[in-house]
């Protein structure tokens, strides 16, 4: 069997969520030839390609789609690229992380290939048997894929750890092959154009992949008070998250939202400050390894899922933590 992983890269590195998709692909079968597709152009692409080629022996091949029109993740071009590759190589599986990139592109290509995609897989039980959360994780659904190849899916990256690199990591680099894009470059009139990406520039880790996440709820009361949380995050090397209530109150932008309608996170340590624990929020963080909750209200539902609860005023607790937690190097 052979698998195509739709890769994302950033700053010259393959994104961790893509590497999780490689782990997922490898768990389908030991005998799986995994090709990772990287698109874009310039030195960032070049660097990411060499990162992918040398990263892990699980990766059998790196496919490079070098073109300016693939610099930005427009679904129309990417779905056509996937279609082209499928016609050429007849993959048994096409996988991507369920990032905004994967969720945008993979279902479109699946429709073009006339197969049903499967979203947000958290477990691969058999080659065509998968578990995925439904109702925001309030139920788990086991589904069997009974269609023709390719079986297309997006995986939840927090459920598939990044392949570990062995100490003797002097394996041969995977072969790199250029995708023939001649039909693409003569591209017909483009129906969609990428204009810009506005992002919060920050040195902190990305929310979806952070080892530690500190989250604030409406009890933080203001955008200014979130700065207190940011200080704590800096000290812990953590990402900052927020509840939907805090986002709706305008304290922080929506891309910090953790929950059913925001990001799904599963860090090693999740610290919730002034978070009540609405079902929709719990859906986004219930798989965290260690959960800490600080809330004035002893009856807050968040305490029912917390490993460590502290009934106290967050405005007293955060400064004390800032003072007492050892600085992360």
């Amino acid at each position: 069997i052979n698998t195509l992983v739709l890769g994302e890269h950033d700053g010259g590195f393959v994104k961790p969520s893509t590497l999780s998709a490689v782990t997922a692909a490898s768990s389908i079968s030991k005998d799986n030839s995994i090709s990772i597709l990287l698109g874009g152009s310039g030195s960032a692409l070049e660097k990411a390609v060499s990162h992918a080629a040398s990263f892990h022996p699980l990766i059998s091949q790196v496919l490079v789609a070098d073109s300016d029109i693939l610099m930005h993740p427009l679904a129309e071009t990417w779905a056509d690229l996937v279609h082209l590759l499928q016609q050429k190589s007849g993959y048994s599986y096409i996988i991507s992380a369920s990032s905004s990139f994967g969720k945008n592109i993979l279902p479109r290509s699946a429709a073009i290939l006339d197969v049903s995609p499967i979203t947000d897989i958290i477990q691969i039980s058999e080659p065509h048997l998968f578990v995925r959360p439904i109702y925001a994780g309030n139920a788990l659904c086991t589904v069997r894929y009974t269609g023709t190849d390719p079986c297309m899916m997006t995986i939840r990256s927090t459920s598939f750890p990044i392949p570990s690199i062995q100490a003797d990591s002097n394996h041969d680099a995977a072969p790199i092959s250029q995708v023939d894009l001649s039909i693409f470059n003569k591209e017909k009139s483009m129906k969609s154009r990428w204009l810009k990406l506005t992002s919060q520039e920050t040195d902190r880790p990305e929310l979806g992949n952070a080892r530690v996440v500190v989250t604030g709820g409406r009890a933080l009361k203001s955008a200014d008070n979130f700065k207190l949380l940011e200080k704590l995050a800096e000290k812990l090397g953590a990402a900052v998250g927020a509840t939907r209530a805090a986002v709706d109150a305008g304290f922080v932008p929506n891309d910090l939202q953790v929950g059913q309608t925001g990001k799904i996170v599963a860090p090693e340590l999740y610290m919730a400050f002034g978070v009540s624990g609405a079902i929709q929020h719990l859906a986004g963080m219930r798989d965290s390894k260690v959960i800490v909750a600080v809330n004035k209200d002893p009856d807050a539902p968040i305490f029912q899922v917390a490993d460590y609860g502290l009934v106290a005023d967050l405005f007293e607790v955060i400064p004390e933590l800032l003072e007492k937690i050892p600085q992360k190097k």
């Binding site: 990032s99 990428w194 990406l197 929506n254 891309d255």
Partner: peptide, 11 residues
């Protein structure tokens, strides 16, 4: 709304 922020496209 994308993972890293807000993306603007024209279609």
């Amino acid at each position: 709304e994308v993972d890293g922020g807000l993306e603007t496209i024209s279609i």
